[in-house]
Design a protein around this nucleic acid. Structure first.
Lengths: 229, 229
DNA sequence: CCAAAAGTGTTTGTACTACACCCATGT
DNA sequence: ACATGGGTGTAGTACAAACACTTTTGG
């Protein structure tokens, strides 16, 4: 006997992306104004539907790049949202993803060409469907992941100052951190390269730039090191 | 303009459950032998398909109870698995769940009536499709969750000894723990009730029974306490 | 010379680790 | 009397938290 797959319900599988960015001060998410019914005119996450010939990671990347032009960024599957009435237009289940991008690389094009807009996490509009819930999930996951994996760097320029890094973690964790303790911790991890060059924008004295050393991190990881902040 | 949902692909959404049990020694998973094609005769997780009128949590519970008779146990969504060829019978996406059950409550009926079988995590058969990968994910999640939430108790009888609790955590973490340190840690959490009664099966002297105090835990949690093991 | 941010160590307390002996009981 | 598992405390170490002053330089 072969299982009769035909007797089972088929449905639409959506993918929605929470796109995080960081503007040196606040953690932000990228939203678009929906230009079709239902819920036309309201703010929404970037979304689309899974095609038969791709997997979810592929769909998430396709949707991200078609709606924002963004490619090759950190993405991670979050959770499947499946309430029966979540989308009044049709019975859909949505798998949420979150992405981390360096806001400076993309800012211009996004707002102009794609009519997407950045909103601070502390003040963003009501979203359609269950997208608010997705964002809350994403923040939780981001907090956990950034304190156990070195993915926070994805939100910063390639070269960054200690101050920027600290501000980033403060924004993610939503709490203030002690400057000396933070720097000591980062130094102890020993996965950054200190550059000769200074960033002269933020102060008269200037502050040294650092970059994440991917190779060193992987080597240490292979030897049993694990990132913990 | 209304979005044309009809132009999008529809597909089958499966739910597969990793069911964990603990037999005083080893962590185990419950498997069934598939009695239909494709892959008839091979071992598989408990699975089924999402119906239109239910959400995923509902489907997971329905599938669990229809295949095993088990109800009202701890379940948590794990991850969506979506490779295009994951199920050769049809294009499906599967959302994996894991469940924790007290093995003693269910053992008999399961093996007899439902022809399900327990396998030790250290020695279980090759599974169909991507089910092996699902099990690996589930173990990771279980390790994380049991060290940050008091859900390990779901795998034990309501009343248990310290030794049992320690053995459970050793099985989950797959490492030996120091008896005194473990007990000190548990006592420091202060979320168990020590009963007057002793369990006389394991030794001549007998060992005190404890139970998890859900109310106390919730009260402490509300006051800022967080479980950490 | 002053304002503004960068950079830098030490002390104190807390949490984790390692470790060994006596107790109670059934046979 | 002895074998079996149950129960208990402390000392040492490592990690986390609190904390304040000096440096640099553009205006």
């Amino acid at each position: 006997m072969t299982y009769n797959y035909n007797s089972e319900d088929k449905l639409l599988l959506a993918v929605d992306c929470i796109i995080f960015g960081f503007d040196q001060e606040d953690l932000k998410i990228l939203l678009i104004k929906r230009n079709f019914a239902p819920q036309k005119g309201r703010w929404s996450l970037m979304g689309g539907f899974l095609h038969k010939e791709e997997n979810l990671d592929g769909a998430a990347n396709r949707i991200l790049s078609s709606l924002t032009g963004i490619r090759n960024v950190y993405m991670e599957q979050l959770h499947a949202f499946s309430d029966v009435d979540r989308d009044p237009g049709a019975r859909t289940v949505s798998v949420a993803y979150y992405a981390l991008i360096n806001i400076e690389d993309h800012s211009k094009k996004l707002t102009q060409h794609y009519s997407a807009q950045w909103f601070s996490l502390s003040d963003f509009p009501e979203l359609i469907f269950d997208h608010n819930e997705m964002v809350q999930h994403a923040i939780q996951r981001l907090r956990y992941r950034t304190s156990t994996k070195p993915i926070g760097f994805e939100l910063l320029p390639e070269r960054f100052t200690m101050r920027q890094l600290q501000k980033l973690y403060e924004a993610i964790l939503n709490e203030e951190l002690d400057k000396r303790n933070f720097i000591n911790k980062i130094h102890a991890l020993d996965i950054l390269n200190k550059l000769e060059e200074k960033d002269m924008n933020s102060s008269r004295k200037g502050s040294f730039l650092y970059q994440f050393d991917q190779e060193k991190y992987q080597k240490k990881t292979a030897e049993g090191f694990s990132f913990k902040l």
